[in-house]
Design a protein around this nucleic acid. Structure first.
Lengths: 143, 143
DNA sequence: GATGAAACGAACACGTT
DNA sequence: AACGTGTTCGTTTCATC
């Protein structure tokens, strides 16, 4: 993880579709050298994937919320792998504090959101914060 | 936004670096037609960007937290554009409820995290939930 | 890590429905 | 208006130094 690796990470975080040739011009390295470094960042797990980001509202997910789950001991959502497959659940973080986890959820409607809450309730007490807007959607990680 | 657009969104969310040729094979459409559709999804704002995702711990950000800010009226973090530029702040969501916003923060150390809390305190009361692990980092948005 | 050759993909104009 | 075909040019990849 030298300066060159960080330069590649910076560029690929900003635009994951940059070609190796374009990357080579930006970091001043030959295309094969760039390809080898990127492959190494992938295999070592520093780069976990390349993802197109979608505008949730424009994709029909008009209701977005952060849900803090305070679970009933052994019934915790974190212990049920089925929750990982619910299409409305976009992220799950295990956290410290009163809640055991924070879920990011996006649904097409309030009715659909209500059904998610109904499915979550058996695991514990959900506390929902509806997302009004997202002033900062994403930031590049720098050294 | 027909089935073909959704097929392209699905593939690009899973792997943003797929070539137009590879996409054309997967959705059974010619490469120029794929390129035109993807360009349209970009210009209409459905696709907001292509980003390489980085493992925070492997990138040296060992401390990750979700911080709920309960701000003092006019001093709200959402009203100060400077906060958008803090490199430790990866996401900001404006939400309903007791808190006015939720921030995702990642720092190299607890000392650095403490300094973020010190910088946030003037805006309101920060309530931090440290992220222990992330069982679901990201999910593809489907129709 | 750089270079050069060969295979592959992207981009444009054009023709088709 | 949306898609397919062609050629041209740029990109990826592998062998080699």
């Amino acid at each position: 993880m030298d300066d060159m690796d960080w330069a590649l990470l910076r560029e690929l975080q900003a635009d994951a579709r940059l070609s190796y040739s374009e990357l080579s011009r930006r970091v001043h390295l030959s295309p094969p050298a760039v390809a080898e470094r990127v492959r190494r960042l992938e295999t070592t797990g520093v780069l976990t994937g390349y993802h197109a980001h979608v505008d949730l509202a424009k994709a029909g997910r008009h209701v977005v919320a952060m849900i803090r789950m305070s679970c009933y001991g052994p019934h915790c959502v974190l212990r049920d792998p089925k929750v990982l497959d619910w299409p409305e659940v976009l992220e799950i973080h295990r956290v410290t504090g009163d809640a055991c986890s924070i879920l990011k959820v996006a649904t097409r409607s309030m009715e659909e959101f209500e059904s998610v809450i109904d499915r979550l309730a058996p695991y514990g007490q959900p506390s929902s914060s509806m997302v009004l807007s997202t002033p900062l959607r994403w930031r590049t990680v720098l050294p």
